[in-house]
Nucleic acid binder design. Structure first.
Ligand SMILES: [Mn+2]
Ligand SMILES: [Mn+2]
Ligand SMILES: [Mn+2]
Ligand SMILES: [Mn+2]
Lengths: 215, 215
DNA sequence: ACATATTTTTAGATTTGTCTAAATATTTTA
DNA sequence: TAAAATATTTAGACAAATCTAAAAATATGT
Protein backbone atom coordinates (compact mmCIF):
# COMPACT_ATOMS: atom_id res chain seq x y z
CA UNK A 1 0.00 0.00 0.00
CA UNK A 2 1.17 3.51 -0.78
CA UNK A 3 1.37 6.28 1.82
CA UNK A 4 -1.46 8.04 0.07
CA UNK A 5 -3.70 4.99 0.25
CA UNK A 6 -2.90 4.62 3.96
CA UNK A 7 -3.80 8.26 4.56
CA UNK A 8 -7.18 7.82 2.89
CA UNK A 9 -8.02 4.75 4.99
CA UNK A 10 -6.99 6.58 8.14
CA UNK A 11 -9.15 9.56 7.17
CA UNK A 12 -12.19 7.35 6.63
CA UNK A 13 -11.58 5.65 9.97
CA UNK A 14 -11.39 8.96 11.82
CA UNK A 15 -14.38 10.49 10.05
CA UNK A 16 -16.68 7.47 10.52
CA UNK A 17 -18.49 7.37 13.84
CA UNK A 18 -19.04 3.62 13.50
CA UNK A 19 -17.94 1.02 10.95
CA UNK A 20 -21.26 1.29 9.13
CA UNK A 21 -21.46 5.12 8.95
CA UNK A 22 -20.96 6.47 5.47
CA UNK A 23 -18.24 9.10 5.01
CA UNK A 24 -18.72 11.78 2.37
CA UNK A 25 -16.32 12.66 -0.43
CA UNK A 26 -16.13 16.28 0.71
CA UNK A 27 -15.35 15.31 4.30
CA UNK A 28 -12.41 13.22 3.14
CA UNK A 29 -11.20 16.01 0.87
CA UNK A 30 -11.37 18.50 3.72
CA UNK A 31 -9.57 16.13 6.08
CA UNK A 32 -6.74 15.42 3.64
CA UNK A 33 -6.48 18.94 2.23
CA UNK A 34 -7.21 17.78 -1.27
CA UNK A 35 -9.98 18.15 -3.89
CA UNK A 36 -13.20 16.11 -4.02
CA UNK A 37 -12.34 14.89 -7.53
CA UNK A 38 -9.08 13.43 -6.23
CA UNK A 39 -11.00 11.69 -3.48
CA UNK A 40 -13.39 10.11 -5.96
CA UNK A 41 -10.45 8.71 -7.93
CA UNK A 42 -8.76 7.23 -4.87
CA UNK A 43 -12.00 5.91 -3.42
CA UNK A 44 -12.62 4.00 -6.64
CA UNK A 45 -9.16 2.48 -6.44
CA UNK A 46 -9.55 1.46 -2.80
CA UNK A 47 -12.98 -0.07 -3.36
CA UNK A 48 -11.48 -1.93 -6.34
CA UNK A 49 -9.00 -3.37 -3.83
CA UNK A 50 -11.82 -4.25 -1.41
CA UNK A 51 -10.62 -1.86 1.26
CA UNK A 52 -13.66 0.43 1.03
CA UNK A 53 -17.37 -0.11 0.41
CA UNK A 54 -18.43 2.40 -2.23
CA UNK A 55 -21.56 3.17 -4.20
CA UNK A 56 -21.56 6.26 -6.39
CA UNK A 57 -22.88 9.36 -4.64
CA UNK A 58 -23.51 7.36 -1.44
CA UNK A 59 -20.25 7.86 0.45
CA UNK A 60 -17.82 5.20 1.68
CA UNK A 61 -17.16 2.95 4.65
CA UNK A 62 -14.28 0.64 5.52
CA UNK A 63 -14.36 -3.07 4.73
CA UNK A 64 -13.00 -5.39 7.43
CA UNK A 65 -9.65 -5.46 5.65
CA UNK A 66 -9.68 -1.66 5.23
CA UNK A 67 -10.42 -1.28 8.92
CA UNK A 68 -7.53 -3.58 9.80
CA UNK A 69 -5.15 -1.56 7.66
CA UNK A 70 -6.35 1.75 9.13
CA UNK A 71 -5.89 0.45 12.67
CA UNK A 72 -2.39 -0.72 11.85
CA UNK A 73 -1.44 2.77 10.69
CA UNK A 74 -3.06 4.33 13.75
CA UNK A 75 -1.17 1.90 16.02
CA UNK A 76 2.09 2.97 14.42
CA UNK A 77 1.21 6.66 14.62
CA UNK A 78 0.41 6.51 18.32
CA UNK A 79 3.36 4.31 19.27
CA UNK A 80 5.75 6.68 17.49
CA UNK A 81 4.17 9.68 19.22
CA UNK A 82 4.68 7.93 22.54
CA UNK A 83 8.30 7.15 21.66
CA UNK A 84 9.00 10.76 20.75
CA UNK A 85 7.61 12.05 24.05
CA UNK A 86 8.89 9.29 26.35
CA UNK A 87 12.36 8.78 24.88
CA UNK A 88 13.30 11.77 22.74
CA UNK A 89 12.03 14.68 24.85
CA UNK A 90 9.46 15.94 22.38
CA UNK A 91 6.50 17.84 23.78
CA UNK A 92 2.98 16.69 22.96
CA UNK A 93 2.42 19.50 20.47
CA UNK A 94 5.48 18.56 18.37
CA UNK A 95 4.91 14.86 17.80
CA UNK A 96 2.04 14.69 15.34
CA UNK A 97 3.85 16.02 12.28
CA UNK A 98 6.75 13.59 12.67
CA UNK A 99 4.41 10.67 13.44
CA UNK A 100 2.57 11.41 10.18
CA UNK A 101 5.79 10.38 8.45
CA UNK A 102 6.83 7.54 10.75
CA UNK A 103 3.41 5.84 10.59
CA UNK A 104 4.16 4.72 7.03
CA UNK A 105 7.33 2.78 7.83
CA UNK A 106 6.71 -0.86 7.07
CA UNK A 107 8.20 -3.47 9.41
CA UNK A 108 6.20 -5.68 11.72
CA UNK A 109 9.24 -6.40 13.85
CA UNK A 110 10.03 -2.71 14.19
CA UNK A 111 6.63 -1.78 15.53
CA UNK A 112 6.23 -4.76 17.84
CA UNK A 113 9.70 -4.21 19.31
CA UNK A 114 8.95 -0.52 19.70
CA UNK A 115 5.75 -1.44 21.56
CA UNK A 116 7.75 -3.69 23.86
CA UNK A 117 10.53 -1.09 24.32
CA UNK A 118 7.91 1.42 25.45
CA UNK A 119 6.38 -1.07 27.89
CA UNK A 120 3.17 -1.72 25.91
CA UNK A 121 1.59 1.69 26.50
CA UNK A 122 -2.22 1.82 26.46
CA UNK A 123 -2.58 5.45 25.34
CA UNK A 124 -0.56 7.99 23.37
CA UNK A 125 0.55 11.44 24.62
CA UNK A 126 -2.88 12.88 23.82
CA UNK A 127 -4.73 10.16 25.72
CA UNK A 128 -5.82 8.33 22.56
CA UNK A 129 -5.89 4.52 22.88
CA UNK A 130 -3.19 2.52 21.08
CA UNK A 131 -4.46 -0.55 19.16
CA UNK A 132 -2.65 -3.71 20.25
CA UNK A 133 -0.69 -6.14 18.06
CA UNK A 134 -3.97 -7.69 16.87
CA UNK A 135 -5.56 -4.36 16.01
CA UNK A 136 -7.85 -4.39 19.03
CA UNK A 137 -8.64 -0.88 20.16
CA UNK A 138 -10.06 -0.51 23.63
CA UNK A 139 -11.82 2.82 23.91
CA UNK A 140 -12.10 3.99 27.48
CA UNK A 141 -15.44 5.36 28.55
CA UNK A 142 -15.03 9.09 29.13
CA UNK A 143 -17.11 12.25 29.40
CA UNK A 144 -16.29 15.79 28.39
CA UNK A 145 -15.41 18.18 31.20
CA UNK A 146 -18.15 20.48 29.90
CA UNK A 147 -20.93 18.00 30.74
CA UNK A 148 -19.83 17.16 34.31
CA UNK A 149 -22.00 18.41 37.18
CA UNK A 150 -20.88 20.92 39.81
CA UNK A 151 -18.90 19.36 42.67
CA UNK A 152 -17.88 16.33 40.63
CA UNK A 153 -14.19 15.48 40.55
CA UNK A 154 -12.42 13.43 37.90
CA UNK A 155 -9.14 12.81 36.09
CA UNK A 156 -8.25 14.45 32.81
CA UNK A 157 -7.37 11.55 30.49
CA UNK A 158 -7.40 12.99 26.97
CA UNK A 159 -7.82 15.89 24.58
CA UNK A 160 -10.38 16.03 21.77
CA UNK A 161 -8.72 18.89 19.93
CA UNK A 162 -5.06 18.03 19.36
CA UNK A 163 -4.09 21.27 17.61
CA UNK A 164 -0.83 22.91 18.59
CA UNK A 165 -2.67 26.01 19.77
CA UNK A 166 -4.97 24.07 22.12
CA UNK A 167 -2.09 22.01 23.52
CA UNK A 168 -0.09 25.19 24.06
CA UNK A 169 -3.04 26.72 25.92
CA UNK A 170 -3.14 23.73 28.25
CA UNK A 171 0.62 23.88 28.86
CA UNK A 172 0.44 27.59 29.58
CA UNK A 173 -2.34 26.99 32.12
CA UNK A 174 -0.64 23.93 33.58
CA UNK A 175 -3.43 21.54 32.70
CA UNK A 176 -2.04 18.10 31.95
CA UNK A 177 -3.27 14.53 31.48
CA UNK A 178 -3.53 12.83 34.87
CA UNK A 179 -4.60 16.01 36.67
CA UNK A 180 -7.59 15.73 38.99
CA UNK A 181 -10.13 18.44 38.21
CA UNK A 182 -12.94 19.53 40.54
CA UNK A 183 -15.87 21.44 39.02
CA UNK A 184 -16.62 24.35 41.36
CA UNK A 185 -19.29 26.09 39.33
CA UNK A 186 -20.98 26.57 35.98
CA UNK A 187 -22.12 29.80 34.30
CA UNK A 188 -25.32 29.19 32.37
CA UNK A 189 -24.98 32.38 30.28
CA UNK A 190 -21.85 31.31 28.32
CA UNK A 191 -21.45 27.71 29.57
CA UNK A 192 -18.08 28.56 31.05
CA UNK A 193 -16.98 26.74 34.21
CA UNK A 194 -14.90 27.33 37.30
CA UNK A 195 -12.57 24.47 38.23
CA UNK A 196 -9.92 23.61 40.77
CA UNK A 197 -6.68 21.73 40.09
CA UNK A 198 -4.73 21.11 43.29
CA UNK A 199 -4.76 24.49 45.01
CA UNK A 200 -5.33 26.50 41.82
CA UNK A 201 -8.72 27.84 40.74
CA UNK A 202 -9.25 28.38 37.01
CA UNK A 203 -11.99 29.77 34.80
CA UNK A 204 -12.47 27.81 31.55
CA UNK A 205 -14.58 28.72 28.53
CA UNK A 206 -16.98 26.12 27.12
CA UNK A 207 -14.68 25.86 24.11
CA UNK A 208 -11.90 24.60 26.40
CA UNK A 209 -14.08 22.42 28.66
CA UNK A 210 -15.66 20.64 25.71
CA UNK A 211 -12.26 19.48 24.47
CA UNK A 212 -11.09 17.70 27.61
CA UNK A 213 -11.95 14.03 28.18
CA UNK A 214 -12.49 13.12 31.83
CA UNK A 215 -12.76 9.89 33.73
CA UNK B 1 13.66 16.61 -1.72
CA UNK B 2 11.90 13.38 -2.68
CA UNK B 3 13.01 9.95 -1.43
CA UNK B 4 14.08 9.10 -4.92
CA UNK B 5 16.31 12.16 -5.19
CA UNK B 6 17.86 11.31 -1.83
CA UNK B 7 18.57 7.78 -2.98
CA UNK B 8 20.36 9.03 -6.09
CA UNK B 9 22.56 11.40 -4.08
CA UNK B 10 23.42 8.61 -1.66
CA UNK B 11 24.29 6.29 -4.55
CA UNK B 12 26.64 8.88 -6.08
CA UNK B 13 28.27 9.41 -2.69
CA UNK B 14 28.87 5.69 -2.18
CA UNK B 15 30.10 5.09 -5.73
CA UNK B 16 32.51 8.04 -5.82
CA UNK B 17 35.94 7.35 -4.34
CA UNK B 18 36.55 11.06 -3.79
CA UNK B 19 34.41 14.19 -4.27
CA UNK B 20 36.00 14.80 -7.68
CA UNK B 21 35.67 11.26 -9.07
CA UNK B 22 33.10 10.96 -11.83
CA UNK B 23 30.39 8.33 -11.37
CA UNK B 24 28.94 6.63 -14.46
CA UNK B 25 25.29 6.39 -15.42
CA UNK B 26 25.46 2.60 -15.55
CA UNK B 27 27.04 2.35 -12.10
CA UNK B 28 24.20 4.38 -10.60
CA UNK B 29 21.60 2.30 -12.45
CA UNK B 30 23.18 -0.90 -11.15
CA UNK B 31 23.35 0.45 -7.60
CA UNK B 32 19.72 1.57 -7.57
CA UNK B 33 18.34 -1.39 -9.53
CA UNK B 34 16.98 0.85 -12.24
CA UNK B 35 17.62 1.56 -15.95
CA UNK B 36 20.33 3.88 -17.31
CA UNK B 37 17.70 5.98 -19.08
CA UNK B 38 15.97 6.65 -15.76
CA UNK B 39 19.32 7.68 -14.29
CA UNK B 40 19.92 10.17 -17.09
CA UNK B 41 16.55 11.79 -16.42
CA UNK B 42 17.13 12.11 -12.68
CA UNK B 43 20.72 13.23 -13.09
CA UNK B 44 19.53 16.10 -15.28
CA UNK B 45 17.02 17.12 -12.67
CA UNK B 46 19.56 17.02 -9.85
CA UNK B 47 22.13 19.00 -11.81
CA UNK B 48 19.39 21.52 -12.62
CA UNK B 49 19.00 21.86 -8.84
CA UNK B 50 22.79 22.25 -8.40
CA UNK B 51 23.14 19.05 -6.41
CA UNK B 52 25.24 17.27 -9.06
CA UNK B 53 27.91 18.35 -11.53
CA UNK B 54 26.94 16.87 -14.90
CA UNK B 55 28.22 17.10 -18.45
CA UNK B 56 26.60 14.81 -21.04
CA UNK B 57 28.42 11.49 -21.44
CA UNK B 58 30.99 12.51 -18.79
CA UNK B 59 29.45 11.09 -15.60
CA UNK B 60 28.48 13.00 -12.46
CA UNK B 61 29.91 14.15 -9.15
CA UNK B 62 28.33 15.78 -6.10
CA UNK B 63 28.31 19.53 -5.60
CA UNK B 64 29.01 20.80 -2.08
CA UNK B 65 25.29 21.05 -1.44
CA UNK B 66 24.71 17.58 -2.92
CA UNK B 67 27.42 16.16 -0.69
CA UNK B 68 25.84 17.80 2.34
CA UNK B 69 22.46 16.27 1.51
CA UNK B 70 23.95 12.81 0.92
CA UNK B 71 25.79 12.93 4.25
CA UNK B 72 22.61 13.94 6.03
CA UNK B 73 20.80 10.87 4.66
CA UNK B 74 23.76 8.63 5.55
CA UNK B 75 23.80 10.06 9.08
CA UNK B 76 20.13 9.21 9.47
CA UNK B 77 20.57 5.73 8.00
CA UNK B 78 23.40 4.84 10.36
CA UNK B 79 21.82 6.33 13.46
CA UNK B 80 18.61 4.39 12.81
CA UNK B 81 20.59 1.17 12.27
CA UNK B 82 22.30 1.78 15.60
CA UNK B 83 18.96 2.43 17.28
CA UNK B 84 17.49 -0.80 15.92
CA UNK B 85 20.41 -2.88 17.21
CA UNK B 86 20.99 -1.10 20.52
CA UNK B 87 17.40 -0.51 21.59
CA UNK B 88 15.09 -2.79 19.63
CA UNK B 89 17.05 -6.07 19.59
CA UNK B 90 17.54 -6.23 15.85
CA UNK B 91 20.57 -8.16 14.60
CA UNK B 92 23.03 -6.47 12.26
CA UNK B 93 21.73 -8.31 9.22
CA UNK B 94 18.13 -7.10 9.71
CA UNK B 95 18.63 -3.37 10.05
CA UNK B 96 19.52 -2.17 6.58
CA UNK B 97 16.15 -2.69 4.94
CA UNK B 98 14.27 -0.80 7.67
CA UNK B 99 16.91 1.97 7.77
CA UNK B 100 16.41 2.45 4.02
CA UNK B 101 12.91 3.61 4.91
CA UNK B 102 13.71 5.52 8.10
CA UNK B 103 16.54 7.52 6.51
CA UNK B 104 13.97 9.59 4.59
CA UNK B 105 12.07 10.86 7.64
CA UNK B 106 12.48 14.62 7.80
CA UNK B 107 12.93 16.21 11.24
CA UNK B 108 16.11 17.80 12.48
CA UNK B 109 14.98 17.55 16.07
CA UNK B 110 14.18 13.86 15.67
CA UNK B 111 17.60 12.92 14.41
CA UNK B 112 19.59 15.08 16.81
CA UNK B 113 17.59 13.77 19.78
CA UNK B 114 18.06 10.21 18.52
CA UNK B 115 21.81 10.84 18.32
CA UNK B 116 21.79 12.07 21.90
CA UNK B 117 19.55 9.20 23.10
CA UNK B 118 22.07 6.73 21.65
CA UNK B 119 24.99 8.52 23.35
CA UNK B 120 26.45 10.04 20.17
CA UNK B 121 27.73 6.79 18.65
CA UNK B 122 30.76 7.08 16.34
CA UNK B 123 30.03 4.01 14.21
CA UNK B 124 27.00 2.00 13.14
CA UNK B 125 26.49 -1.77 13.69
CA UNK B 126 28.63 -2.55 10.63
CA UNK B 127 31.51 -0.35 11.80
CA UNK B 128 30.71 2.44 9.34
CA UNK B 129 31.34 5.96 10.69
CA UNK B 130 28.33 8.14 11.53
CA UNK B 131 28.53 11.75 10.27
CA UNK B 132 28.02 14.24 13.10
CA UNK B 133 25.40 17.00 13.35
CA UNK B 134 27.51 19.17 11.00
CA UNK B 135 27.95 16.43 8.43
CA UNK B 136 31.58 15.76 9.35
CA UNK B 137 32.50 12.18 8.68
CA UNK B 138 35.65 10.90 10.33
CA UNK B 139 36.89 7.83 8.51
CA UNK B 140 39.07 5.66 10.64
CA UNK B 141 42.27 4.34 9.08
CA UNK B 142 41.88 0.59 8.64
CA UNK B 143 43.39 -2.29 6.68
CA UNK B 144 41.75 -5.41 5.31
CA UNK B 145 42.43 -8.63 7.22
CA UNK B 146 43.65 -10.14 3.93
CA UNK B 147 46.64 -7.76 3.70
CA UNK B 148 47.90 -8.16 7.27
CA UNK B 149 51.22 -10.01 7.77
CA UNK B 150 51.59 -13.29 9.64
CA UNK B 151 51.83 -12.91 13.44
CA UNK B 152 50.13 -9.51 13.42
CA UNK B 153 47.23 -9.03 15.77
CA UNK B 154 44.47 -6.45 15.44
CA UNK B 155 40.85 -5.63 16.20
CA UNK B 156 38.02 -6.26 13.76
CA UNK B 157 36.27 -2.90 13.41
CA UNK B 158 34.09 -3.17 10.32
CA UNK B 159 32.71 -5.15 7.39
CA UNK B 160 33.11 -4.18 3.74
CA UNK B 161 30.40 -6.50 2.46
CA UNK B 162 27.21 -5.86 4.43
CA UNK B 163 25.08 -8.49 2.71
CA UNK B 164 22.86 -10.68 4.87
CA UNK B 165 24.71 -13.79 3.74
CA UNK B 166 28.14 -12.45 4.76
CA UNK B 167 26.86 -11.20 8.11
CA UNK B 168 25.22 -14.58 8.73
CA UNK B 169 28.52 -16.31 7.95
CA UNK B 170 30.28 -14.16 10.53
CA UNK B 171 27.59 -14.84 13.14
CA UNK B 172 27.76 -18.57 12.49
CA UNK B 173 31.55 -18.52 12.93
CA UNK B 174 31.34 -16.24 15.96
CA UNK B 175 33.34 -13.43 14.38
CA UNK B 176 32.14 -10.06 15.66
CA UNK B 177 33.23 -6.43 15.66
CA UNK B 178 35.60 -5.82 18.56
CA UNK B 179 37.19 -9.28 18.34
CA UNK B 180 40.97 -9.43 18.43
CA UNK B 181 42.29 -11.51 15.52
CA UNK B 182 45.77 -12.98 15.27
CA UNK B 183 47.06 -14.04 11.84
CA UNK B 184 48.71 -17.44 12.28
CA UNK B 185 49.51 -18.20 8.66
CA UNK B 186 48.81 -17.47 5.01
CA UNK B 187 48.43 -19.92 2.13
CA UNK B 188 49.93 -18.44 -1.05
CA UNK B 189 48.08 -20.85 -3.35
CA UNK B 190 44.56 -19.56 -2.68
CA UNK B 191 45.34 -16.55 -0.43
CA UNK B 192 43.41 -18.13 2.41
CA UNK B 193 44.55 -17.47 5.98
CA UNK B 194 44.62 -19.19 9.33
CA UNK B 195 43.60 -17.00 12.27
CA UNK B 196 43.06 -17.21 16.00
CA UNK B 197 40.23 -15.54 17.95
CA UNK B 198 40.62 -16.10 21.68
CA UNK B 199 41.30 -19.82 21.92
CA UNK B 200 39.69 -20.69 18.59
CA UNK B 201 41.63 -21.31 15.40
CA UNK B 202 39.81 -20.63 12.10
CA UNK B 203 40.59 -21.02 8.43
CA UNK B 204 39.27 -18.13 6.31
CA UNK B 205 39.10 -17.86 2.52
CA UNK B 206 40.46 -14.74 0.85
CA UNK B 207 36.88 -13.79 0.02
CA UNK B 208 36.14 -13.58 3.74
CA UNK B 209 39.42 -11.98 4.81
CA UNK B 210 39.17 -9.24 2.22
CA UNK B 211 35.83 -8.11 3.62
CA UNK B 212 36.91 -7.47 7.21
CA UNK B 213 38.32 -4.07 8.24
CA UNK B 214 41.00 -4.31 10.94
CA UNK B 215 42.66 -1.77 13.18
C1' DA C 1 42.71 4.38 -37.61
C1' DC C 2 38.74 2.30 -38.15
C1' DA C 3 35.32 -1.23 -37.19
C1' DT C 4 33.01 -3.04 -33.26
C1' DA C 5 31.33 -3.06 -28.68
C1' DT C 6 29.75 -0.50 -24.92
C1' DT C 7 27.74 3.38 -22.72
C1' DT C 8 24.71 7.09 -22.65
C1' DT C 9 21.07 9.82 -24.26
C1' DT C 10 16.65 10.73 -26.58
C1' DA C 11 11.88 9.88 -27.85
C1' DG C 12 7.79 8.32 -26.62
C1' DA C 13 4.83 5.57 -23.43
C1' DT C 14 2.98 4.27 -18.69
C1' DT C 15 1.53 4.63 -13.80
C1' DT C 16 0.32 7.25 -9.75
C1' DG C 17 -1.69 10.94 -7.64
C1' DT C 18 -3.08 15.18 -8.28
C1' DC C 19 -5.63 19.30 -10.47
C1' DT C 20 -9.50 22.37 -13.05
C1' DA C 21 -13.65 22.81 -15.41
C1' DA C 22 -17.79 20.97 -16.72
C1' DA C 23 -21.51 17.66 -16.24
C1' DT C 24 -24.58 15.17 -13.31
C1' DA C 25 -26.81 13.64 -9.10
C1' DT C 26 -28.64 14.69 -4.62
C1' DT C 27 -30.38 17.69 -1.07
C1' DT C 28 -32.50 21.81 0.51
C1' DT C 29 -35.62 25.52 0.29
C1' DA C 30 -39.50 28.05 -1.01
C1' DT D 1 -42.70 19.60 -6.01
C1' DA D 2 -39.95 22.52 -8.73
C1' DA D 3 -36.08 25.67 -8.51
C1' DA D 4 -31.84 26.57 -6.39
C1' DA D 5 -27.94 25.18 -3.90
C1' DT D 6 -24.73 21.75 -2.84
C1' DA D 7 -22.20 17.50 -3.47
C1' DT D 8 -20.17 14.26 -6.45
C1' DT D 9 -18.42 12.46 -10.57
C1' DT D 10 -16.39 12.70 -15.19
C1' DA D 11 -13.24 14.37 -18.71
C1' DG D 12 -9.08 15.90 -19.74
C1' DA D 13 -4.60 17.71 -18.22
C1' DC D 14 -0.14 17.62 -15.67
C1' DA D 15 4.20 16.45 -12.99
C1' DA D 16 7.12 12.79 -11.15
C1' DA D 17 9.41 8.67 -11.82
C1' DT D 18 9.85 5.02 -14.30
C1' DC D 19 10.16 1.94 -18.65
C1' DT D 20 11.44 0.20 -23.79
C1' DA D 21 13.41 0.89 -28.14
C1' DA D 22 16.21 3.44 -30.98
C1' DA D 23 19.79 6.89 -31.87
C1' DA D 24 24.10 8.97 -30.74
C1' DA D 25 28.47 9.30 -28.43
C1' DT D 26 32.43 7.19 -26.46
C1' DA D 27 35.65 3.43 -25.65
C1' DT D 28 38.09 -0.72 -27.23
C1' DG D 29 40.79 -3.79 -30.00
C1' DT D 30 43.30 -5.15 -33.84
MN1 LIG E 1 -1.21 12.52 15.95
MN1 LIG F 1 -1.97 11.41 19.23
MN1 LIG G 1 22.73 0.00 5.81
MN1 LIG H 1 25.36 0.14 8.15
Amino acid sequence: MTQSEENYLKAVFHLAGSQTDKVSTNAIAECLQTKPSSVTDMVKKLSEKDLLHYKKYQGVSLTDEGSKRALSVIRKHRLWETFLVEKLNFSWDEVHEVAEQLEHIESKKLIDQLDSFLGFPKVDPHGDPIPDKNGELQEQHTRLLSVLPVNSSSICVGVRDTSVSFLNYLDKNKIALGDEILVLGKEAFDDSILIQIGERKLHLSNRIASNLFMK
